[in-house]
Amino acid sequence: MPDAQVELQLIAHLQRRFGDHDGLAQHLRDSDFVFSHFFWLASFPGGNTIDLQRKLPRLRMFPVVVFPAFHPDMIYVGDIASLRLSALVHGPLGPSHSAIALFGFLEGLSVEATLGLYTGAVFERLGYHRAWDEGAAHLLGAAREVGFGLEAEFVRWQRRGCFMHDSNHPKLHVLADIATRLAVEAGLQPLDLAAEEYLPDLLVEEALWPVYPAIASHYGVSAQDMFRAKTAKGRPPRLYDLKSFVAESFARYAQVPREQLRADRIEAWRGDPGIRALFRSAGGA
């Protein structure tokens, strides 16, 4: 819709720009259409998207696309419940970490021993191959909850191979499908164009997570070998192969108080004797 005036509001900037929900609702009141995914921020007074929808009844919600199957090893570490980026531990790729690397570090494994755990057999034992069914059920269920079922779109996305940059960042054609449908269902007439052929995928500028070869083989998609840190303006991207990524992760973890290196998955693995034994065997213990 080249003649439309579209305004993007970033959740992280809402309080600074509008103060609270009343300020945001007032700003949006004269808009012809308002689209939002669900958000909840304790730091943004007034509630969440449902509360905002009560003030703006025409607000249409769309689902957040989170799908970890292609990147099941990726986790966040630190005070995740605070919903603040500053409360997370940062590694080579910012706030995203390899669960295997972190647990290997915490179990006292060497970098070399930890590298030996990135295999299909280990992924199977860790439940990584269940991430597709679990992720699809969560994504499609969450979409239905906001009245925006994604069953047809999900089939189309998976036919194109890996449709995520990482667990939380979908590729441009996924976002374009959602935006197109929002426009059409609102009675608008967007041009019938492939968005990725005309627009930059801004999420490419964020950190990019590879599709491990064993995961790629399991799903029949192309493998990717390199981790890439978020690009800095005017600088070439920083790339890591698996060995350099794990080594750099270990170096970062060594500088962080151990009590901060926490995540739900890590706690679950600590309580699983079989997984503890799997990691100990990799270290020769």
Rank of each mutant, 00 (worst) to 15 (best):
S222T: 15
S110C: 07
G91K: 11
L191D: 14
A4G: 06
D177Q: 09
P92C: 13
W209C: 04
L115D: 11
H165I: 06
D30M: 09
Y253C: 15
D241Q: 07
E153I: 03
L85I: 11
R130F: 04
L242D: 07
L278G: 10
Y128P: 00
W157Q: 02
G94L: 11
M1Y: 12
L41N: 08
V77D: 06
Q189V: 10
S217D: 15
F148W: 01
A136V: 05
E145F: 01
F250G: 06
S244N: 13
R181L: 09
H138T: 03
C162Y: 03
A179P: 01
D272R: 03
Q255I: 01
G161I: 04
Q260W: 08
A25Y: 09
N48A: 10
W269V: 01
T49V: 14
G104M: 05
R160N: 13
A4H: 12
D22V: 11
P257E: 15
L126P: 00
L140F: 02
H165L: 06
D30K: 14
R16D: 14
I50E: 15
A263F: 01
A254D: 08
F154R: 05
S86T: 14
T49K: 05
D30N: 15
G147R: 01
P257D: 13
A285R: 15
S98V: 04
E185V: 05
E205Y: 12
L261Q: 09
P200S: 09
G94R: 10
M226D: 13
D264S: 15
L140C: 02
G284Y: 14
F103Q: 02
P63Q: 08
N168P: 00
A223G: 08
Y198T: 04
M61Q: 10
I11S: 07
Y76P: 00
M74W: 02
A186Q: 08
